[in-house]
Design a protein around this nucleic acid. Sequence first.
DNA 1: TTAAGCGGAGCGAACGTTCATTCCAGACCT
DNA 2: AGGTCTGGAATGAACGTTCGCTCCGCTTAA
Lengths: 191, 191
Amino acid sequence: MKTPTKRDEILQAALELIAEHGFHGAPMAMIAEKAGVGAGTIYRYFETKDVLIRQLFEELKAKIMAALLAGHPTGKPARERFSHLWKVLFRYLVANPLHHRYMEQYHNSPYGVAQHRDRLLNKPDEQDPIRSLFEEGIEQQILKDLPIMVMFSLAFGPLFGLIQDQLNGFIEMDDALIEKTVGACWDGLKR
Amino acid sequence: MKTPTKRDEILQAALELIAEHGFHGAPMAMIAEKAGVGAGTIYRYFETKDVLIRQLFEELKAKIMAALLAGHPTGKPARERFSHLWKVLFRYLVANPLHHRYMEQYHNSPYGVAQHRDRLLNKPDEQDPIRSLFEEGIEQQILKDLPIMVMFSLAFGPLFGLIQDQLNGFIEMDDALIEKTVGACWDGLKR
DNA sequence: TTAAGCGGAGCGAACGTTCATTCCAGACCT
DNA sequence: AGGTCTGGAATGAACGTTCGCTCCGCTTAA
């Protein structure tokens, strides 16, 4: 890691402020101050606040996807791949609470719906290990025959809720409990 | 239903605007206009915008809890009670999309965290059919022995995700699919 | 080798807009 | 009449964005 560029400093400051205080608790002036740049400088890198928010989302999404893909046991049984994906995602979000909180904020907002709509109606993301896991599993009759979207909610709905609880300090998920929880999610999915 | 009081009109207008456009897309002036009252009138009923937002949350929470309690098959087997709770909640939120969207907004916001913290640290809500269902089920070894909070996420995490998808028009959950999905959630929970 | 010129990055005061909240003149009861 | 309630203009604070200036590294000319 070299010295971050000003663009990076701005994105990082925006991430911290928005994740912690919401879109409205993060005025451009405050982002600028935290990033150590002038207010006008932000506009050299991002046309508007909206663009800044959207680009930050794209960067975080890419990082998360990279984490999911790294070390993915392609070719191994579905159960094992599922367990890996779930645990990697869980650990990533716990290790990067700001990422989680930002994504969460983004999702419940005008931005999020358009985003989600595009994700579904456009090409199905060539490299999506989750989707292909579900499709294979259904085809091989390992998994229940439910719409992909239902499968996704069954598998990861609990995850997002638990991340939130853990970040808020309401529960401490150790490795054993994570393992049991992955198992429970799988029980919901499997035929 | 009598003619609604001004207070009710204000709450209803706030619900519609906030659910649809977020906290920031719902200026007091707009709420006043939609409610058919003067801007100043709102302040006769609610000290600040924050108070209005919080009281609206409390009202919605009470309505949802009432729906959960109505017709609840107390004394029937855990599996049946679970199915009832899940379906009632699902149908309620689909039938009242504004309620769902408002609650969702509220939860991911400074308000939400404090709320959640209180809910846990204070008294456990004497009349909570969900919590008691889980506690009994675990004791009778019908359910997996997991923390209540994990049980809750396993059971209702998928529900909230699916509601969102349904409200956004990404999926259409008919009765058969709802039934299958409740079954899948139960499979995750049961021992 | 130096000096002048150039251009783009950076800054932050200033602008116009939007918002929550206040205030008070009138309307509406009793 | 006296008291309470109502509406919406007025207020002041906060925000996103703009703009003209400064600064600095590089090129060019002598």
